[in-house]
Nucleic acid binder design. Structure first.
Length: 576
DNA sequence: GCCGTTTTCGGCCCGACTGTTTTCAGTCG
């Protein structure tokens, strides 16, 4: 049983426990453990097999959950979970996804009305049976009814890049409003998560109503979920929720910390505040006096808030309660920025499935100020993309040799290829050809359903080939669309390290592969990471910034990344 | 269920908003 499967079991158990009204801290313990495991780059089964390691050393995993992990790995089952699943139909849990319906209310509906599916619940609402329950009313019934479809279709988070476009429209809409002083988008958007659930807006304003009235006029608004003195929630036509919060100026920094999250980071710093005899909430940091009174200490800016707790300001991308607090003790890393990037080493032209010509791509790269680019079209196995065979590739490289002269002094153009790793292993191009190139990428496009062993062997085989420089999108996942293929990244990293090879962070917002956790693991092993656009047209070069955000979440600095260096340095990194 | 510079018990972050009550429980972030 792999980590993802263990995580799913623990999450399900947490849901079931919550539904049965278990101690909420116990529920949280399961969720925390699931989170920790999700963030591991090593398999639980490997840790168990390694006598020098202990599961209980992991944060949030004590004796009990360590035992449960072991049982899961060894038997693939968890008796406690089986028990609960027998008692509670899984369809009941879907009710808890309806906005406004939590575990308590869902349990009442299930126990009193014997309703266990969304379909039955809809019927019960329509027959006005729900409003008869104690603690329920006509309004709640209506909320449930309108939320049922949402619960059925929801669960899909929006790509960061798409959320960003919405944020820009909201920013524009709220920009020239008289009375709004400060405005910032917070939440997972600000932390740069690869997907975003909802949009959080924080403002300071003369009166909350100015901001709320303006949001109320947003053209994409479909309904107002709630509106109080300082807080307003709306839903948009695309079902996305937007929360607006208005705070006083002296609380702006504290509120920004609070609403940027993550929840886990906040819980942690609240604990630290307590140790300091202080309290932190969205209004500020307060010293708690012996008589119980509270004294405002800080809150105007984020820097003030962290400083009051003897902490440095954390870039939002690091606020995940992974290891940022430990890092802070020796000084936070200087995270990479998009300005550090001096070249792009993965792009396609109209020779294969790209839209633009060689020269168009080159000129676009010059406009971006790059020192160099690698032209890396597909190899022939990717027939769908009109992949290059030996003859066409050599012709393209000949052309590039000419262009090298033409663009001399302006930009360096590298002869590259995105060469497929064949299903049976081996490269989709003879070595005698590959060795004439300057930057050969290896990637898996076919046979993605193969076993862990097969896929791992294929990638390792590629990295051991002296002509290969880097493995592209190493896990093959497509966010919200396709799971990663079953690959032993530990073994891949090991091989990359031994052979002076690199791994890619593909900046396409649907890929972002490697993800933040894997990039961090590669960094810790000292494997240089190449951040590439994988552009298929000139506009595609712009996705580099999404890769940078992901890299920042991984804690990468300029030094960890391949294409922050001049080409000559990269050449020597490869041991050439 | 986890955790420990208040250390093996007793905490565990904290406040806004809603709907249903008639002072508050539930939900959410």
């Amino acid at each position: 049983m792999n980590n993802a499967q263990i995580v799913a079991r623990f999450e399900l158990l947490a849901d079931l426990l919550e539904f049965t009204g278990a101690n909420s801290f116990r529920v949280r313990a399961y969720r925390n453990a699931a989170r920790t495991i999700q963030g591991l780059s090593q398999q639980i089964s490997d840790i168990l097999a390694d006598k020098s390691q202990k599961l209980t050393d992991l944060e949030g995993i004590g004796k009990d959950l360590a035992d449960k992990c072991q049982v899961l790995v060894e038997t693939g089952q968890l008796p406690q979970l089986e028990e609960m699943q027998k008692k509670i139909p899984q369809s009941v849990l879907a009710m808890m996804r309806i906005p406004g319906l939590g575990p308590k209310k869902a349990a009442v509906i299930y126990n009193e009305l014997k309703v266990s599916t969304l379909e039955e619940l809809k019927q019960a609402c329509e027959e006005k049976r729900v409003r008869e329950l104690k603690g329920f009313g006509a309004k709640t019934e209506q909320t449930i009814l309108s939320g049922i479809d949402l619960a059925a279709t929801a669960e899909q988070r929006t790509y960061w890049a798409k959320a960003d476009r919405l944020v820009q429209r909201l920013k524009e809409h709220l920009s020239d409003v008289e009375g709004i002083k400060q405005l910032q988008f917070a939440g997972s958007y600000r932390r740069g998560k690869e997907t975003v659930g909802d949009i959080d807006i924080l403002v300071t304003a003369k009166s909350p109503d100015t901001a709320m009235d303006r949001l109320n006029e947003f053209p994409e608004l479909s309904e107002v979920i709630a509106r109080g003195d300082t807080k307003m929630s709306i839903r948009l036509d695309n079902n996305m929720q937007v929360d607006l919060r208005v705070v006083p100026e002296e609380s702006y920094g504290a509120a920004l910390v609070y609403f940027t999250g993550s929840k886990e980071h906040n819980v942690k710093i609240r604990g630290i505040a307590k140790q300091h005899g202080m309290k932190i909430n969205e209004y500020g940091v307060f010293r708690v006096e012996k008589d119980g009174s509270e004294q405002y200490v800080a809150g105007k800016t984020e820097e003030d808030v962290y400083k009051a707790l003897d902490l440095p300001w954390f870039p939002p991308e690091l606020r995940e309660n992974r290891d940022e607090l430990k890092l802070a003790e020796k000084g936070l890393p200087k995270l990479i920025t998009v300005e550090d990037i001096v070249g792009d080493m993965h792009m396609h032209t109209n020779a294969t499935d790209g839209k633009n010509t060689l020269e168009e791509m080159i000129n676009a790269a010059i406009d971006k100020g790059y020192q160099y680019i690698a032209i890396t079209d597909h190899s022939k196995r990717v027939s769908m993309a009109n992949g290059l065979d030996e003859e066409r590739l050599l012709a393209q490289w000949k052309e590039i040799d000419k262009l090298k002269k033409k663009f001399d002094g302006k930009i360096l153009i590298l002869k590259g290829l995105e060469c497929d790793i064949l299903e049976k292993g081996g490269m989709d191009m003879p070595d005698k050809v590959l060795e004439q190139g300057e930057w050969i990428i290896a990637s898996v496009h076919y046979g993605q359903n193969q076993s862990n062993q097969q896929i791992t062997d294929r990638i390792i085989g590629a990295l051991e080939n002296p002509n290969i420089c880097i493995v592209a999108h190493p896990t093959g996942r497509l966010i919200n669309r396709r799971e990663a293929y079953d690959v032993d990244l530990d073994a891949v990293f090991q091989c990359a390290k031994e052979n002076n090879k690199f791994v890619e962070l593909n900046a396409n917002p649907m890929r972002l592969d490697l993800n933040d956790i894997h990039c961090h693991a590669a960094q810790q092993r000292g494997i240089p990471i190449g951040i590439s656009s994988d552009a298929h047209n000139i506009e595609g070069l712009e996705v580099m910034r999404y890769g940078i955000i992901q890299a920042r979440r991984a804690g990468l600095t300029k030094e960890d990344v391949v294409n922050t260096r001049p080409w000559k340095k990269i050449h020597s990194l490869l041991g050439r």
